[in-house]
Amino acid sequence: MDMKIELLAVPVSDIDRAKDFYTRIGFSADHDHRVDENIRFVQLTPPGSACSIVLDYNFTEMKPGSLQGIQCVVADADAALADLRAKGVQASDVDEQQWGRFVYFSDPDGNGWALQQLPAYS
């Protein structure tokens, strides 16, 4: 039986600020639906990803900024870093590891992301 991760909740304190941040770095705004005065469903998808995120404002017990280690794979870590910095995002220098090249950054609430360029295996 296949099991595919389709949606990850990212806990935020301000949906509008988070939506602005994620769309600024290239995420697609797929849905923005207000269910009622207390619930707003905002789903965004990273470019090329089959998995989306939902901005979690009181959907789960997670505190804003508590999600760490979300990882996306990119073709070129240097280009990803340059793109993030051009968009005003504070990101780490490229971290060279045997298992890939990584760029780390956080959203405005402190949720931590890693972009990994996979190593070239021969």
Rank of each mutant, 00 (worst) to 15 (best):
K19A: 13
V89P: 09
S28W: 01
A18H: 12
M62N: 12
F27E: 01
Q43A: 06
L8D: 03
A50E: 15
N58L: 12
R85W: 03
G110R: 02
P108G: 01
A91H: 03
D95P: 00
A114K: 06
P119V: 05
K87I: 04
F105Q: 02
D109T: 06
Y121Q: 12
F105G: 00
F21I: 09
F21C: 07
M62H: 11
F102T: 04
T45I: 06
A18K: 10
V54C: 13
L115I: 06
L118K: 15
I25N: 04
G110L: 11
A91T: 07
S28E: 14
I53K: 05
P119K: 01
R34C: 08
S122W: 11
L7G: 06
A75Y: 05
H33E: 13
Q117C: 05
R85A: 09
V103G: 03
M3I: 15
I5D: 03
L115P: 01
E37M: 08
M62D: 13
S66R: 10
A29E: 15
G26A: 07
A9W: 05
D95E: 09
D83W: 04
R101I: 02
R101G: 01
G110A: 03
S52M: 01
R24C: 10
D36L: 08
D2P: 10
E61T: 13
T23M: 08
L81G: 09
V89W: 08
M3V: 15
R17W: 05
D14E: 13
G110S: 03
G112L: 14
A82V: 06
M1A: 14
G100L: 10
K4M: 12
A50Y: 05
K19Q: 13
D107V: 03
F41Y: 15
A18L: 10
G88I: 11
I5W: 05
F27T: 04
D95G: 00
P64D: 11
C51N: 03
G100K: 04
G48H: 03
Y57A: 11
Q43P: 01
Q98N: 14
L118V: 10
C51R: 07
Y104V: 03
I39G: 01
G100Q: 03
G26S: 11
A29Q: 13
R40I: 06
D20K: 15
P119R: 00
R85I: 04
T60R: 00
I5F: 13
C51H: 02
I53V: 11
V73P: 02
D76W: 02
S66M: 07
T45H: 04
K63M: 10
A80C: 12
D83I: 00
I70T: 15
K87H: 14
Q117R: 04
A18P: 08
S13F: 02
D76T: 01
L8A: 14
Q71P: 00
D14A: 06
K87L: 10
